[in-house]
Design a protein around this nucleic acid. Structure first.
Lengths: 130, 130
DNA sequence: TCCAACCATCACACAGGTGTGATGGTTGTC
DNA sequence: GACAACCATCACACCTGTGTGATGGTTGGA
């Protein structure tokens, strides 16, 4: 597929797909006319990128993380340098922190919503038709 | 305490504390000389802000969420408008998505690290001194 | 009294993710 | 062949969170 379809199927803009490529997150093949060409796997990959970006990770980090998330797990131990592994561990820990933090706060919001709804219920019922 | 101490105790810069105030996330009282004055509760509050920012939420949203996270839970049902509640629910759902997404990916990274470590172990041991 | 160490405001700058538009090439259809 | 609908590159601009520095007021200790 070409860039327009990928954009539609991932809910991104063409501009961003080019940007992700520029940042080295995806590498499109090129047709003879210069058009970028993508296969289906890019759909998930782009969604993954969007999710990680939304979670607050910068492209620089995403670039390092992505190769480890490939589903067919082809490369077990690539040229993973010790620094690379250290980065991964550090990033994993930061993600764990984020998860815990988000969970705590989401639960607090939930609790708040519950309380508000409980206290609001009474005034929903007005005089029940005497 | 004044801005310098708060900055030190929260690991932020004075600049950012003023920015958060400008964005309506915190409201400092002012001493007679114009200096900002904070009590201890601001330490947690600022850390909370930092965490939410780090998790990818913009100040605009944080501003709406923060009041629901106050620990003494003083305000059960404030002037919570329906739109406000809707925003909260939407944001809670987005946080849940983020949590699930982060968890999946963190686990994948973890799994990757495990595999790499397993496959790397062998070549740590070189010829064991014949 | 002077100086260091705070504080205030304000302005400019930057980086990263994103939008928008200019300019021009390719392709398929009428 | 003309036109619409793609595609390409490039440049400029925006927003948000941050840094940095200029300029000046306050305070407390040598």
């Amino acid at each position: 597929m070409r860039i327009g379809e990928l954009a539609a199927r991932t809910g991104t803009s063409r501009r961003l797909l080019r940007y992700y490529e520029e940042q080295g997150l995806i590498v499109a093949t090129r047709a003879a006319n210069g058009y970028r060409e993508y296969d289906d796997r890019f759909v998930d990959r782009v969604k993954q990128i969007r999710g990680l970006l939304d979670a607050g990770l910068p492209t620089r980090i995403i670039k390092q993380i992505l190769p480890c998330l490939d589903k067919p797990r082809t490369i077990y131990f690539p040229d993973a340098t010790p620094e690379m592994l250290a980065t991964l561990e550090r990033e994993r820990d930061r993600m764990t922190e984020r998860i815990e933090f988000l969970t705590r706060n989401r639960d607090a919001i939930n609790e708040y919503l519950d309380v508000v709804r409980a206290n609001r219920q009474p005034d929903v019922e007005l005089e029940p038709a005497v």
